[in-house]
Design a protein around this nucleic acid. Structure first.
Lengths: 203, 203
DNA sequence: CATTTTCTCAATCAAATGATTGATTGATGA
DNA sequence: TCATCAATCAATCATTTGATTGAGAAAATG
């Protein structure tokens, strides 16, 4: 009767499974690209049958949408972990840079998958609905920071906040790519010089 | 004798066919993404049989490499069309911006396909061998321009040429995406303000 | 305990897809 | 005129791949 079945495949709850599936999918998108993403590979990495995967996530389309939502949740959680109230514009900008450093260090796949899904958004409205607002939010954060920084005189007065925000997010995203990774710090430094007002006694 | 047979399936030379295949593939990569690229679709768009396509390009891998090489050739041709000898650094930078405007206007798919292949380079050494040097060349052009512009005093003296070059290429590439396209001019303007020295009578 | 719900898998399907085969056509040159 | 070769296609193959079916085990519910 074997009261102790050593190998009992621990039964996960639906949410846990879906999170595990999303994370496996993210890793596989980085490894093989969106064009190399296979439901079988995901199931194998999670350690479940393909049918089980389809039980939790009905279709591949839904699966990619799940990945998109998972990115959004991680981004949101990360932003909430670093409140920016009470900081001046300069400190807020440096805070954003630090958050990006943290993402690159702790969730390196996040930016890469995001960039693939931004491309996909061009052709897939379902994904666009999740990804574009997230990207707009990130750019918007920088726009706000630049606006207040111009007002309080810590940034160059002739900055176009929206344009500068695109430059910053584009440059940071670009530095995610492995062959650009070593350039992250020089690029951040150059961004600071490009927007901060030159103050002799700044630091 | 019917000297004009309206429907004769004109027989193309190998090179012509390969060029046509590369262009069809480029268009399809933009429409469906790398993950949606199908050899059948390419053959259909060129107007040939799949077997004929495989006669000219042995495998799908070779086909993507062909696309990469075709991008490189177009880039090279475009660069040669705009000689930069004799221009000062400021004019050279504006010249580069104009070249980019021209690419966006006349070969809008070029930047998009390039960006997909840069991603692919992370996983495919064959593609990396073609694409990364091309990307490095483009960045290198900006690096040189910044170096000379610092020396002749038209640019901010504390610019890090390599970092600034990455910022510029990343920002321009980002503005290729359709939802960013309207931001191209503001971004270019902001890039100029970020690197040119403020001169009251500059024009 | 009985019933229901949740979760899991082996087996299988149907379509998609990259690639090949074997034959045909037209041009070129000897 | 005939042999050769580049270019082309219809038909077909072998896998891959997203998805389904039907059955069963574990947990929750009553």
């Amino acid at each position: 009767m074997c009261p102790e079945q050593a190998h009992i495949p621990r039964r996960e709850s639906g949410d846990e499974r879906r999170i595990a599936i999303a994370h496996a999918a993210r890793a596989l998108i980085i490894e093989k690209g969106l064009e190399g993403l296979r439901t079988r590979d995901i199931a194998e990495r999670v350690g479940i049958n393909i049918a089980t995967l389809h039980y939790h996530v009905p279709s591949k389309e839904a699966l990619v949408a799940l990945v998109a939502a998972s990115l959004r949740d991680d981004f949101k959680a990360q932003a909430l972990r670093h409140p920016k109230e009470g900081l001046d514009a300069g400190a807020q900008l440096r805070q954003e840079f630090n958050e990006f450093r943290e993402i690159v260090a702790e969730m390196p796949e996040l930016i890469g998958v995001l960039s693939e899904l931004v491309d996909l958004s061009r052709r897939d409205p379902t994904i666009a609905e999740i990804i574009l607002p997230m990207q707009a939010y990130w750019t918007g954060q920088f726009t706000k920071i630049f606006r207040t920084g111009i007002e309080d005189g810590s940034f160059r007065p002739d900055i176009d906040p929206a344009g500068a925000a695109i430059i910053v997010t584009a440059a940071l995203s670009d530095c995610w790519r492995p062959h650009r990774r070593p350039s992250l710090e020089p690029v951040i430094a150059e961004l600071e010089r490009a927007f901060f007002l030159p103050v002799s006694n700044q630091g």
